[in-house]
């Protein structure tokens, strides 16, 4: 019995971080909004650090509905892409993933946002769940909260077109 020893944990972590960094770093708009991603295993949490220019209504003050929508959509797209890359990244079958040459991002077909509470002038967090991911289409749900995870301030769901998977 010849068993291949498990890969050292730091190699696995480095590979995952490199792919995530390339995925997120390749999109200028994610940098413009300032969204970051925390990773624990395969679970991603998007973080939107508060900045004054995310405000929509300065009188309240409240986060701009458009900034909230964009934060949710960015989270959905990155979490979906990450889930599509995961198997390839982990199994290492086929050519290894090149962080400089990742597959094209999914395209949003439709996106529906519910604003549940006023977005406060502080950091926001979001997690997305891929409810279905087929050959061409995927359906993703995403939820955002601020101080209390049990009190989400916005949620959204959308359909995405998976491009470049069979062409």
């Amino acid at each position: 019995m010849n068993r291949t020893p498990p890969e050292p944990v730091h190699i696995i972590k480095e590979r995952r971080e490199a792919v995530l960094k390339a995925l997120v770093g390749g999109v200028p708009y994610i940098g413009f909004l300032g969204v970051q991603f925390d990773r624990r295993g395969d679970e991603l949490t998007a973080v939107l650090p508060f900045r004054d220019d995310l405000i929509g209504n300065p009188l309240l003050p409240a986060l701009h509905g458009g900034a909230t929508a964009a934060f949710l959509e960015v989270t959905a797209i990155i979490v979906l892409s990450w889930s599509l890359l995961w198997d390839n990244m982990e199994k290492g079958n086929g050519p290894p993933l090149d962080p400089a040459n990742l597959p094209r991002l999914p395209k949003t077909i439709d996106f529906t946002i519910d604003y549940l509470r006023t977005g406060l002038p502080r950091d926001a967090y979001a997690r997305a769940r891929v409810n279905r991911s087929g050959r061409r289409y995927a359906s993703v749900h995403v939820e955002a909260w601020q101080d209390n995870h049990t009190r989400p301030f916005a949620q959204a769901s959308g359909h995405f077109l998976l491009t470049g998977r069979d062409d």
């Binding site: 390749g26 708009y29 413009f32 509905g65 929508a69 797209i77 991002l105 946002i113």
Partner: peptide, 22 residues
Amino acid sequence: RFVGDPVTGVIHGGAVSALMDT
């Protein structure tokens, strides 16, 4: 700075959403 697809230079859907919301 608003680009969502680095390959094509297309604006991110999130920025379009913010415009339509405004």
